[in-house]
Structures are given as structure tokens and as C-alpha cells.
Design a protein around this nucleic acid. Structure first.
Lengths: 331, 331
DNA sequence: TTTGTTACCGATACCGGTATCGATAACACA
DNA sequence: TGTGTTATCGATACCGGTATCGGTAACAAA
């Protein structure tokens, strides 16, 4: 019935008490008699009262907000991380607020600034490659900073993720051990997706150690996608018919590669290798190699760290949580 | 250097002016001389001042927040909608806040309640099937309520989406027109994903009109996924060898179906039909039928409506934005 | 009857900004 | 010299809650 508003004051008037008593009753504080508590609750119900968190947070100096900054939404990986965070926060009374940077450093800076203006209790950001200015801002916020996904670099505070350089290395080692010799590479936008670039660098380093190199490669400049992976793979197969293995920037691209090899009837002699361990990769009609990144787990661990914001934190321990991706589909 | 805090008051002290002047200078208000403006800006810079939106919003009675409530994150569809919203909000100074309900009605109610306590300028919720209690709460919020994705029902206020019943009907009509006769169905969790249920109902209605029915079906009870679609399809193919078309609850399941038919060498006589028009569906090595849902566009339109919150809105026009999904891959 | 204790409740001062109105100084003009 | 005007700034009152402290009533104990 009543249109919007309704403040503590109004509920107080309706219940015939002071707003302080209403505040206590609604929060379940002990210093309220059963009788008045019931009156207050009824009045609040009747007026459709909904608390004002702006006032609450400003007054109590706690927001119970967790800012989360991710680069993209168009790949299922980050939504899964966000779901993990959301899940890990459940029951804590904390709320995640998300920001998307589109892999843009300047945008990231502004988004982080905007997020900090909400005075979150903790902030989760993707990667370790923020520019100095952004790092300074994060340091200055005096809240737990949790950098996720990547481990290759110097963390500001907490760090949860995996080494992408090492993931690339391990994949190369596994493929070489399995007898692969003529490698190709397909990826896209490595200048923006720095983690994909690190994987490629690690992979290539191991190739060099074994006196090998990418025989051929195709790089796109748009966001990675299944269709792009398929398209570039067809190109690469035409240009380099003798490849026996192609490494991709991620599983989406790799799935496209798998489709391309199927269409070219090359599934028997070419092994497709990706990264992430997507559900899709496991369901493909052909086996592809991939490293499973614990995306959801990373989100949950990050959430757990964020929850610890208010509690007693052991300052120096557990700052870094390292995961080692499991490689599957090679042999 | 300086650890956290720093308020307007402190910047004011540092600049030798009142906090009101700092407030004006930082917002670019006209009543400030160039000289003091510069002094203030420098002081703010030096102290690493970051505004407090809690105070700002409480004081000005505007949050510029858009609450967004979606059921899931584990399917790329909703992240794409969210990306569309985020994109559509760009440059407006508004910020989206997301909540995930996991297709749980009770959870949805609580999440909406929590969101409203932040006093958003508008709220975007998925679907039209909220229980009365939730509808009352939304009505009472006295802000624009934008229900997205679905059109089959009675909207509270704004409505942006498509009719899923009709989408199912149209797909059935197209498939029948293309000569398909023996239909199967594969889906999952239709009791929670109501829109998938509506599509199925619409599809089945048209089958009946043509004196047809699903010859066989498999229903999972977990969330839809490529693997599940593949698994259920294999089961269905074993049980009903004579199908010539299978309708799926969505494209993820359908992709799994496509893989199953490939593995069973049945790609020539069975047509796979899904819903969403995912990028993946177009890249598959076999053609599948699908209806393209304008997910990103829905998000952008919703964002545009949310932006209009503060401006002069023509109350009765443009309340409903209907999209008609385009069917591809049938013939 | 006096004194203590406990249970319950209200008054007041913030939290960190913005809106509003008024004050002051400088300058132009009569 | 007196009077407006304009530019620039500050004082004050909120916004809607919570923290803190103090007050009152009821009851038990002395």
C-alpha cells in the first residue's frame, strides 16, 4: 500500500517507541522486551520497512562489501570465478560487487577507484600486472587486497592462483614427452590477455630447451572464441600441413581447433592442447589436452580471505595460495 | 604514504579552506576560484583522497546504482546479459550490482530485499514469475522495475525479452515444415528453469496441433551442460533409434547432443535443435538448429531503461520491448 | 525505608558528504 | 563616499542509521 520510503523514525512513530529501540529490535539486540519487540516487528512489517544500508554502513563504518574486478564476462571462466566468490561469501552477510575492465588498464584504474569509493571491506582484483599508480591506490585503501588467477609477479597482499608461465611449461613438457615434435600456436589478443601470453612464453621456453620452436602460428586480435579458433586453425593447417600438435591460448580456441581438425579429417595425427579444463573440452568427441584451472576454487578461496577481513588475521601466513593445474588428455 | 582514510575535512584542512569548498572544487562546481580549486586538487591528490559514496548517496538521496538479479552464472547466457547491462550503463555514472539466485525463489526474495536496502535507482530482475510477496516488495520500492528475458506473464513495470512459449512453438513449426516427424526431447531442471519449460510447452503444443508428440525424452535434474546433453542423448538414441529430430532445453545441451550424434554416426538422419544461438553452436562441425536470443541487446535495452530513471519518463509508453528470436539451421 | 541491581528505553553525538542560505570582499558605478 | 553586483567562500542543517551513555521503573535485599 504505502509507497516507498518508511524510515526507522516512521516505524518508531507507528510502534510508539524511539527509533533507537526500533533499531535494536530489528537487529535482534538483547535490550528489548518481548512485547515491544513484537510491536516493532509488526509496525515494520506493516510499513514494509526495508533498512537503509547506506545509513547503516556510514554510521557503523562497515560495509560488508567485497569489490571484485575482472577483465571480461564473455568467456565462461570469469563468471565461474565470480560464482565461486559469490558462493564463498554466502552466509557471511557480505555482498560482492563486480566491475568489468574489458582488459583495459585505464578502465581498470577507474573502476577500482569507483569501487573503493564504496569503502568495501576487501577487494579482489584479477592479475598482478596493475600499473604503479593503481597499486598505490590499492595499498592506500588499507583493506585486504586479493589478487587472483595469476601468480607470476609480486603480489600487493594476498595472492590466489597459479603460475601461467609454469602451466605453459608443464604442458610443453608433457606434449614433448608424449612424442610431439612439430608444434603450432593459435591465440588472440595476447597483448591484453597477459596470462595467455605468459602461458605461451612458458611453453615456448621449454620448446627452446628442447631445441624446438613453433613451426607456425596464427594470432587473432579480437577476443578469443570457438569460431575464431576454428578459423585460425584452418588457416594454420593450410599453411603448415605437417604439424602434429597445436597449442592454444585457451580451451575456447582449442575447441574451435578440434572442430577444424575434425572438418579437415586430421584428428588422428594432430593433438589439440588448450588451457582451462572447460566442461566443454571434456565433452568433445575428440580428445584434447588441457590443464584444468581451479577457477571456482580460486573464487572460493578469495572469498574466504575476504571474509577474514574483520576477524583476527595472522598477518604473515597464508598470503599466497598456489594451485598447480592438472594436465589431462595428453596421452 | 598516508594510510587510508582522508576525508573532505582533512583535505579542507590541508588546503586551508572549508570542507564545503573542497566538495565544490572536487565536483567542479562553479563557485570556486581557479586558485583555490588548484590548491584543493593538489591537496586531494597529495592525501590520496577518494570520495565516500556512502556519504554522498545518503546525503544527496541518489545512489546511481542499478540492482541486477539473475538466476545463474554457470551458463554463458547471463554473463552476456550482464555484460550488455554493464555496457549500456557506461558513461552514465551508474553502477550495476549483481545478485545470483541459483534459480531459488526464496533466495531471490532475500537477494532482492538486500539489493533494495542499497536504495538503487532501478532494479533489473530475471523473469516474470516472482511470488506475490516479492512482487509487492518490488512495487513498494517505488523505483523502475525492469523484468528481462521472459515475456510470458504480467510485468510489474518494464518488460524486455521474448516469449519463450512462442519460441518453442516457432521452432516446432519450422522443424515440422522441414519434414521432421519423430521428435525427441532432452532437457534438465525444467522445474527451476521456467523459461526452458515454457519453450518445451510451446513446442509440445504445436506437436499436438499436428497430431504429433515427443516419441521419447530424457530429463536430467542437474544444471544443463554439454556433458549432460551428450550423456542423455546417448541414452535417448539407444532407447529410441528411430528419432529424426531432438529438441533441447538450450544450446549447451544441444551441443552435447550434436557430439553424441557424431559419436553414434547419426548426424545425417537426426537434426539437433537448441535455443540461444550461442557462438559455440555456429562453430560446431555439424549444423544444428537454434533460435538466437538477443541476450546482449536485452541487457543494453534494460540498461537504457534504468538510465532513464532520473529523467522525464513517459509513463505509459515503451513499457514492453519484445524481441522475436531468429531461427537458423533448420533447412 | 533505603539501597542495589537489572531490564528496558531514550537523548545525543556522530558517520562523511551535500543543499541552502548568508557573509564578506572586491569592484564598478553613481 | 555610498550603493549595487558579483565572485567566492563558510556555517548550519540535514540524510538515516548506530554507539554510547544515562535515566527510569521494578524488584530484591538490607
Amino acid at each position: 500500500m504505502d509507497t516507498h520510503k518508511s524510515t526507522l523514525e516512521e516505524v518508531a512513530a507507528a510502534a510508539g517507541v524511539s527509533k533507537m529501540t526500533v533499531s535494536r529490535a530489528l537487529r535482534g539486540a538483547p535490550d528489548v522486551s518481548r512485547a515491544t519487540r513484537d510491536r516493532v516487528l509488526q509496525a515494520a512489517e506493516r510499513l514494509n520497512y526495508i533498512g537503509n544500508r547506506l545509513a547503516l554502513s556510514l554510521s557503523s563504518q562497515r560495509t560488508d562489501l567485497v569489490a571484485v574486478v575482472v577483465p571480461s564476462m564473455s568467456n565462461i571462466v570469469f563468471p565461474e570465478v565470480m560464482a565461486g566468490i559469490s558462493n564463498g561469501l554466502e552466509g557471511s552477510g557480505m555482498q560482492a560487487v563486480f566491475g568489468i575492465t574489458d582488459y583495459d588498464v585505464a578502465k581498470e584504474h577507474n573502476i577500482i577507484r569507483d569501487m573503493l569509493s564504496w569503502r568495501p571491506s576487501a577487494i579482489i582484483v584479477t592479475g598482478l600486472d596493475q600499473p604503479d599508480e593503481t597499486v598505490r591506490m590499492l595499498r592506500n585503501a588499507a583493506i585486504p587486497v586479493i589478487q587472483i588467477m595469476d601468480l607470476d609477479g609480486t603480489p600487493i597482499d594476498f595472492n590466489v592462483g597459479l603460475s601461467h608461465e609454469r602451466a605453459g611449461e608443464e604442458m610443453a613438457r608433457a606434449l614433448i614427452a608424449a612424442g610431439r615434435k612439430r608444434f603450432g600456436y593459435v591465440g588472440s589478443a595476447l597483448d591484453r590477455d597477459l596470462r595467455a601470453g605468459k602461458r605461451r612464453a612458458g611453453f615456448e621456453r621449454v620448446l627452446h630447451e628442447h631445441r624446438l620452436a613453433f613451426v607456425g602460428q596464427r594470432l587473432g586480435d579480437t577476443l578469443s572464441s570457438v569460431g575464431l579458433g576454428k578459423y585460425l586453425t584452418h588457416q594454420l593447417l593450410d599453411a603448415e600441413p605437417k604439424l602434429d600438435c597445436i597449442y592454444y591460448s585457451n580451451d575456447d580456441m582449442a575447441a574451435g581447433g578440434a572442430f577444424a581438425t575434425m572438418e579437415a579429417s586430421r584428428t588422428d595425427d594432430i593433438l589439440i592442447a588448450g588451457f582451462n579444463g572447460l566442461e566443454l573440452a571434456a565433452a568433445l568427441p575428440v580428445r584434447i589436452a588441457t590443464s584444468r584451472s581451479p577457477r571456482r576454487m580460486i573464487g572460493e578461496v578469495a572469498a574466504r580471505l575476504a571474509r577474514g577481513s574483520g576477524t583476527t588475521d595472522n598477518p604473515s601466513s597464508g598470503k599466497i595460495t598456489a594451485f598447480v593445474p592438472e594436465i589431462t588428455g595428453v596421452a
